[in-house]
């Protein structure tokens, strides 16, 4: 019994088939890393899981209950999609913080928009939860700053805290360090490691092979719109079975 699973996810843009039937599953508290070259469909898969681009076919399961069937739910009203989306969080490559809001307000905006309870005590609770999370990513002292006053690494840590505010069941990362200077990737990866240690269920699309190997419970290698190889990170990195993964790893070293 898997905590989260996707089954036969396909997606085409025009005549280009980007995802050709992707399956995977993961347990609660696991970290799943997705590796693969550009254009292999990693990002499209992640965007599909977060309902930013709806897959053409495919089913999503949470604790073995199918809660999304792309073929059937294609015409679902935005309101329903929004509910399903809340099972997941997504941290973007380019952070996408809201520039006009302070760090604290970046964290509080969505929870306050979603809250049924608009009372002062509820607002205060949101605020204190936000401060807790900022503490966890080591940025409590930046709560009053604006995103443009932070470094890329700090912005990404804020974005992670913002995603955690809604306590998603599965937190997804789309190349979280690709837009950062090399010297700034470390602080973001450290936060990810902390989250992994806290058993937060995560899917991470990444090009940081060393990191994927250290942190992941499971690694998926995508190529040409399918899962070409998957398994335990040690095995995958030391003993690749498919020629494609062998070639990919040879090129990334």
């Amino acid at each position: 019994m898997a905590y989260f699973a996707v089954e036969n996810v396909t997606k085409s843009f025009g005549s280009t088939r980007v995802l050709k039937g992707v399956d995977f599953s993961m347990e609660k508290g696991e970290v799943l890393s997705i590796i693969g070259s550009s254009g292999s469909g990693k990002t499209t898969l992640l965007r599909g899981i977060n309902f930013l681009t709806l897959p053409d076919t495919g089913r999503f399961y949470l604790e073995d209950a199918c809660f999304f069937n792309a073929v059937k739910d294609k015409r679902l009203p935005e309101r329903e999609i929004r509910k399903k989306r809340l099972h997941f969080g997504l941290v973007f490559q380019s952070f996408n913080l809201f520039p006009q809001y302070s760090v604290l307000d970046n964290l509080c905006l969505a929870p306050r928009c979603l809250a049924q309870d608009k009372s002062k005590s509820a607002q205060e609770e949101t605020r204190s939860r936000a401060m807790d999370l900022l503490n966890r990513v080591g940025l409590a002292d930046k709560a009053g700053n604006y995103p443009c006053e932070l470094s890329g690494g700090q912005q990404q840590r804020v974005a992670i805290a913002r995603a955690l505010m809604l306590s998603p069941k599965v937190l997804c990362f789309d190349e979280p360090t690709s837009a950062l200077d090399p010297e700034l990737t470390g602080e973001v990866l450290r936060v990810l490691k902390d989250l992994a240690a806290e058993r937060i269920t995560m899917i991470i699309v990444t090009h940081e092979m060393k990191f994927a190997r250290e942190v992941s419970d499971k690694v998926i290698f995508m190529a040409d719109g399918v899962v070409a190889e998957e398994g335990d990170p040690e095995r995958l990195f030391t003993d690749p079975q498919t020629p494609r993964l062998k070639a990919f790893l040879a090129n990334t070293r």
Binding site: L52, G89, L90, F98, A110, C113, R162
Partner: peptide
């Protein structure tokens, strides 16, 4: 910006 709002469940 639109997508960040969307994944945070905003309308």
């Amino acid at each position: 910006q639109q997508e960040a709002g969307q994944v945070l469940g905003m309308t």
